[in-house]
Design a protein around this nucleic acid. Structure first.
Lengths: 191, 191
DNA sequence: CTCATAAAATGACCGCGGTCAATAATTAAT
DNA sequence: ATTAATTATTGACCGCGGTCATTTTATGAG
């Protein structure tokens, strides 16, 4: 029943991902070119698309993995006890998201899957972020309002995180940082 | 001092926009092709890019205009007196935003300008939506919490609107509509 | 009207994501 | 080992957004 995966397939896929990671490390996500990836991996262009639906699917892998790692690190840290500490805890995630406008756009685009079947790495990190927020919100050390279910509070944290980052891109000239913007939101939302 | 704009320029630009509108009306935004636009407008391809920075800039015009119209209609309507009525009032906007995933993605991408100078039509509609929300929130007929500045409440409405629409795309299989999802957010946020 | 200058329009061309029929490598059966 | 069936790889090709040197058209001065 299970499809027999050839060892060659895994090897080629790994070569492609390694090549892509190296190229991203050398410049950035936005300037990644499929042709460069396949050249570095030593395979033909068509091979790339036999392994990934399209270029964005590779990006989904790369960026999703990065975000998952960041979220795991955050989850391993201490329980925040206030909105300010929440924002501090989220800082690594924010830094990554605002480092490249391209990344943020892609994350937003991939946050929602077209169907239940094609939930990709990035979409999973949204779930992960929600679970983390839910954990924080239900922890006794973080005093939050109790007139609203914790699930809703957790979703709200995600909404304000997106909002704060969007506004940061909207006004790069502004001196208000994402963190400064996010704190009042959470303060008002969670109190 | 003022650049002398030739009548020909305005005419060509109008031809391009008219052609684009007709094509969008005939199918949808996503399938719009620059080549089709210029062919219908009866001009060369290069001419298009003399009038618009890129294809997205044209989309910015088209979609921004639509949204501005929708928001004006909403603003001309009655003052909502509850979160449910807010969501009802916003329904035309929501309908347009979820009609095409492509449109929503582009709206998000254009919501933030790269700098203060290049605020386009779509970015302006975000401002417009904010002003409308602020107006609602400060109206005496809508009872809202007073422990938070109205400006923050207005921004929050925008954040939850985006969140609700995103989740709608994320789970097209789900039976929960955008409206149903949005009401609890606003209920908790404004009370 | 004529000519000089600037503005607008042109279309061949390029970059890059993505496709697909043809080919090569792998596996399983005898 | 040979063959047949499956799976992976290849690279020429296409679609479409975007560029730019060249040509065409409008404008203003004398």
């Amino acid at each position: 029943m299970n499809k027999p995966v050839q060892a060659r397939t895994l090897k080629t896929r790994a070569k492609l991902i390694d090549a892509a990671k190296a190229l991203v490390a050398a410049s950035d996500y936005e300037s990644l070119r499929v042709e460069d990836v396949v050249q570095r991996a030593g395979v033909a262009k068509g091979t790339f698309f036999a392994h990934f639906q399209d270029k964005d699917a590779l990006m989904d892998e790369l960026i999703g993995e990065r975000i998952a790692t960041i979220l795991n690190d955050i989850a391993a840290g201490p329980q925040p006890t206030s909105p300010v500490e929440i924002v501090q805890a989220l800082r690594p995630l924010i830094s990554f998201a605002i480092a490249e406008r391209y990344v943020f756009d892609l994350v937003l685009r991939y946050s929602g899957a077209a169907g239940i079947s094609d939930i990709g790495p990035i979409a999973r990190t949204f779930e992960q972020q929600y679970e983390l927020s839910l954990q924080w919100v239900t922890h006794p050390d973080l005093k939050v309002r109790d007139d609203v279910p914790p699930e809703l509070l957790a979703e709200g944290i995600g909404a304000f995180l997106i909002q704060a980052i969007s506004l940061a891109f909207c006004a790069l000239h502004s001196s208000v940082s994402v963190e400064e913007r996010l704190v009042p939101y959470l303060d008002a939302w969670l109190r």
